[in-house]
């Protein structure tokens, strides 16, 4: 099933906070299905009239589904794309879900220069991004991979610094952390499998154009 079937377009959507805006955006360009909701018990939600299928997957897994062609296209945050580093085509910046990947330390540990953070420990959910950032800066650090509650790490002495995704920075403030470097901004992206993009080019390209118009329309308002 899935992309095996040339008639259908399979779209992967991520669980979590990008789900609702992504589903809404697709609905606005006519791509939706009955019962498409994040807590749907069905694993595959199809709209046979429109010949479209939706699958809802864990964010970190989404690039893998698309890379293998289990889904033709997907919507996912740039942060996940950078971290997972999968071979997928990045077709469009959907401009929503704006966050930034950044480096933060407890106020008390703040240094003047980035190089002064050398040899400290960094807690993060994004080890690849963190490693790339410090390597490019020529700084050696020890990276500790965690799966959540990153802010806790400096408080209990597990690490001195954190690399994390923040939206407003409120959590940082609440935990007396200050942002010392911006790594990159991240928004939601439309991605496609490299074979699907070619074999279902007309359909995927039209969807991309429709979404692009929508994104640009919103930006102008």
């Amino acid at each position: 099933m899935t992309s095996n079937d040339m008639e259908y377009l399979t779209i992967a959507l991520p669980k979590g906070k990008l789900f609702a805006p992504a589903a809404k955006m697709l609905a606005e360009v006519g791509y939706t299905a009955e019962g498409l909701s994040e807590d749907s018990r069905k694993l595959v939600i199809a709209n046979d009239e429109l010949k479209v299928r939706f699958i809802i997957v864990k964010t970190a897994d989404l690039p893998t589904y698309v890379e293998y062609g289990a889904a033709d296209i997907g919507i996912i945050g740039k942060d996940v794309l950078l971290e997972e580093d999968k071979d997928v085509y990045e077709l469009l910046d959907l401009k929503f879900g704006l966050c930034r990947m950044m480096l933060a330390v407890p106020e008390a540990l703040a240094q003047d220069r980035l190089a002064d953070y050398a040899h400290m420990r960094v807690a993060t959910k994004y080890p690849k991004i963190a490693e790339r950032f410090f390597r490019d800066a020529g700084i050696q650090v020890e990276i500790i991979k965690l799966n959540g509650s990153i802010e806790l790490a400096p408080i209990v002495g597990l690490a001195e610094m954190i690399v994390d995704l923040v939206e407003t920075g409120r959590t940082l403030k609440e935990n007396k952390l200050i942002e010392v470097a911006r790594i990159h901004p991240a928004t939601a992206r439309m991605v496609a499998n490299r074979v699907s993009f070619k074999m279902k080019f007309d359909r995927i390209n039209k969807l991309k154009e429709d979404l692009k118009r929508l994104v640009e329309g919103v930006a102008e308002k």
């Binding site: 992309s3 095996n4 079937d5 040339m6 698309v66 890379e67 293998y68 062609g69 289990a70 499998n193 490299r194 074979v195 699907s196 070619k198 074999m199």
Partner: peptide
């Protein structure tokens, strides 16, 4: 390319 295989 062929359908069902996400790679060339």
């Amino acid at each position: 390319y062929t359908p069902g295989l996400g790679f060339p």
